[in-house]
Design a binder for these strands. Structure first.
Lengths: 222, 222
DNA sequence: CAAAACGTGAACTAAAAGAGAACATAAGGT
DNA sequence: ACCTTATGTTCTCTTTTAGTTCACGTTTTG
């Protein structure tokens, strides 16, 4: 009935209406979907209206109304949603939580730090730690020996605390984020890949900032 | 009223709509039915529309709607996603689904077939395929080279259909269940572990029964 | 056997999606 | 009123994804 983008937008609108009551502007929707232009939003809105999922008043700002949701998606009844201090995670009901997906992270050669969240993934709440969490998609093979494959989605609990032996998202020199096993040796910090083709990298503790630690992983087979 | 293929497709579409709301594309349906060309899907869709089981918007992508199901098939209304023969899965709301956890399965040496479900796990509905799904906890290291570790939880879509190269739960001689990559070679079936310390096992096709195929995996780090 | 259902692959057409800019209208403040 | 900002609408382009059609061969079934 709906395309993925249409559904994503519909759920976003529905979430906003049910959590605060103010309907989102085209710009906000644009950002929520990770677009750079709102003309795309306009088309999606038209498609949703054509299919009878939303109603709107012509030429009126923020005048959207969700008429129905696709089958199988339970209405987000109560005023719910943003979990305090969270990076934007929203809770659905029944133990589910929606985390922002902050783009891809290299398990291999470090790449630049995160882009904006451009989509969301749903993960079991039980998998999410207590703190603020977000999701990343793995790119590269450097953690392959620990069973973290290219394309996997990982859940990161954000925060600087980490013990030796934990797998962390580390930012080196404030510019490159990478997923590695952490080992602290006094003043120096080692980032250990799990792939015999990659080298352990050792840095002065000042240069490495732990952004978060790995708490969960999931993978889909097609 | 319907041919086997038509019904199979109808149930697939219905399952998809009820589990996530996004209707499948012709390519996805093609894959779901194990076809190599989508023109066959086109014919089936036409047949279903002609018989009044589905409605569609002409020339619109992913704009299918199930109008009715054949007699004797319970509608997969709200609380469900799993079509007939459900192993006991229950859906929560908001894209979550609760799957029965059928105990542990050896990725290494095959162990006895499943015990009863003694607990449940929550997984994102998006991760669950169309059919009946259940979860298993991995025991052993034999699939370690494919990133499936001891202690991981895997989601299995139950059913005998599997193609070479897929990872399946295979029952050998009706008594030992194991998770392996499947390779069909005419009359014989090879179960391929992903660990250099384990051997490929080859059986006559009669002795091996595919119980389901791997569709998802998740892991928690502590 | 013949009809209907299936399966395949290629060529073609049409939507969906993303970007960017110009323009239109609504709302708010002074 | 007048100006300003926020918002919504349209248009044009490009790329990607999805749907349609056709020709031809195989299988199933009444």
């Amino acid at each position: 009935m709906l395309t993925a983008k249409q559904q994503q937008l519909l759920l976003f609108i529905d979430g906003r209406l049910n959590s605060g009551g103010v309907s989102p502007s085209f710009d906000e929707m644009k950002d929520a979907l990770g677009l750079k232009s709102k003309s795309g939003v306009h088309r999606l809105i038209n498609a949703l209206e054509e299919r009878g999922f939303i109603k709107r008043m012509a030429n009126r700002a923020r005048a959207l109304e969700v008429v129905k949701l696709p089958d199988g998606i339970a209405p987000t009844d109560q005023p719910s949603n943003v979990v305090e201090g969270n990076f934007g995670a929203t809770t659905g009901s029944a133990g589910m939580i929606e985390l922002p997906l902050h783009g891809r992270i290299a398990a291999g050669a470090p790449i630049e730090a995160f882009e904006n969240a451009d989509s969301f993934v749903q993960v079991p709440a039980a998998m999410v730690g207590r703190g603020d969490c977000y999701a990343l998609e793995i790119s590269g093979e450097s953690m392959i020996d620990l069973g973290i494959l290219d394309g996997d989605t990982v859940i990161i609990e954000s925060g600087p605390a980490a013990r030796s032996g934990e797998i962390v998202v580390a930012l080196v020199d404030d510019m490159e984020a990478t997923l590695k096993t952490l080992r602290k040796d006094g003043r120096s910090v080692a980032l250990i890949p799990a792939n015999k083709d990659h080298e352990i990298q050792t840095y002065d503790a000042d240069r490495v900032q732990v952004q978060g630690r790995l708490v969960g992983l999931f993978r889909q087979y097609h």
